Structures are given as C-alpha cells and as structure tokens.
Computed example of a mutant assay.
Amino acid sequence: MALRPAIPSSWTVDTLELRRIAEAQDDNWWYRERRAVLTRELNLLRTWGRGPGTAVDIGAGPGDTARLLARHGWRTTAVDLSYDAVEMACARGVDCRQADARWLPLPAGSVDLALAWDVLAHIEDDDLAAAEIARVLRPGGTALVAVPCDMALWSARDLALGRVRRYTREGLARLLAGAGLVVERMWSWNVLLRPLARWHRHRMNGWEIRPRHPLHDRLLGAVLALEDLLPVRSWRGTTLLARARLPK
C-alpha cells in the first residue's frame, strides 16, 4: 500500500500573508485582472461544450477563486494544505478540505476541470502534484495552470509565499507533458509591467497587493488589460498560464 508523502510545513503561506491576500482580492488590480483571465477561460470552455461540470480548485487559499468557479456553474471542491486557508474558505461558503496537492481526496477520473492557480511553485516534487491533476481529471478534462515565471524575478516575496521555484516555458511544458497532459495553449501574463515588477520586487514585499490610490489601481489594471490587444503573449511576463487537456 502506498504511503502518503510527508507534508513540509514550508509549503504553506503564513497566516498574515493569507489575510493580506484575502483582504486585497476584492478591489486590487492584480486579482481583478486575474479573475478576468479565468473568466475568459471558463467562457471558452462553455462555448466549446466543456463545462460547466465538476471542478477542483487546488491550493484554494481564502476561497475567492472557488467562489468564482461556482458563480460560473462549476460544482467545485476546494483543497488547500493550510488549515488557516481552509477555515477562511469555509467561512466564505466554499466546500474546502485540507489536503496535500500530491494526494488529492478525490476519486480518479472524477472532475472535468482542475484549477492549479499558483500552487505548483510551492511544491518541491511538483511532478507528483501534476500527476494528481491528471489522475483526478476525466478523459477529455481540462487543467488550467498558473505559475510564477522566471527565476530572475525571485525575491523575498516568493519566500513569504512559500515558493520553491519560478518556471520557464520549457519547464512548465515538460512538467505537464510528463503527467500525460496535452498543452493546448501556454502564454505569458503581466508582460508590460514586468520591468516595473522586477524593480519593485527587490525593494518591498507584496508590491502587487499593497494599497493604492484608486486612480493608480485602475491605471495598473488598464495596462494589464491592454495586453489582450497586443502581440506580447510570447514575451516574458511575471506569470505563465497554461490550458492543458487529458486525452480521451
């Protein structure tokens, strides 16, 4: 019988950081534009007849992304390693369970969508987590993955969030293919603001989520939204996004 792997405590985001994230998500430009990205992907899946259905939100944090999935009709189970995160998510009405991303509490082939939004970078043996995504997906199911990009951006912020790496395109493609997933699309996000993000990351923690004047917040959000109109998705950003599918 296989044994569950030990859970390193360094994988969890500290409670103070979780609370900062929870407080920022409603009004902050970074999280607002990320919700827009996910909404577009969910709408595409609906258009293609690939949802809504059952979903798992891996590394759910305070539960805001799981709530977005639910608003789009997905029957969502959220999981997070952090007890504090699970408590916060449950307080927001999310069905959230404490679980290791490498050992999901779900049967094989039980979900149509697996969301791994900024979780793989926290896991030393991320290949096991990727394999779990493939295991719980139904044949033809979709994985939506977001990871931080490029070790040149590594900073104290990554450490505060419990990350162990940032990714290259090649590394993420290799990880997903190794789990048996077929990458349909991979693209960069937050490209235009990358130089500013790189400059600030080595000077302060939480540059993306610190409070700002509303006009400043809207300007940053507008720059991110502008990327949809420009051919910059192949350039390096601060985040890599991927849509992958488990073959039928």
Rank of each mutant, 00 (worst) to 15 (best):
G221S: 10
L224V: 10
L172K: 10
A131L: 05
A173T: 15
H213Y: 02
W189Y: 14
D112P: 02
V191I: 12
S155I: 12
V119E: 01
G140Y: 09
A160I: 00
L175P: 10
W207I: 04
D126Y: 13
R135N: 04
H122W: 08
A160M: 12
M186E: 04
E184T: 02
A134E: 14
S188Q: 07
L215M: 08
A121T: 05
D125R: 15
V136Y: 09
R185K: 14
G162K: 08
L137A: 03
E184C: 02
G180E: 10
L181C: 11
E170I: 06
E170V: 11
R218A: 13
L224W: 13
L137C: 05
A177E: 15
M186L: 12
D112Y: 08
A173K: 11
R210M: 09
L104T: 12
H200M: 14
R163G: 13
R163W: 04
H216K: 09
E132L: 00
V136D: 04
P105R: 13
E132G: 04
A146P: 00
L128G: 05
D158Y: 03
I123L: 10
L106G: 01
M151F: 01
L144W: 10
A173G: 15
P195F: 01
V223D: 10
D125T: 11
L104S: 08
E208H: 11
M186V: 04
G180P: 06
G141K: 06
H202T: 15
E184H: 11
D158E: 15
G221V: 05
R138L: 08
H216Q: 09
W199E: 09
G171C: 02
A130H: 09
D127V: 06
H213M: 07
V191P: 07
T168Q: 08
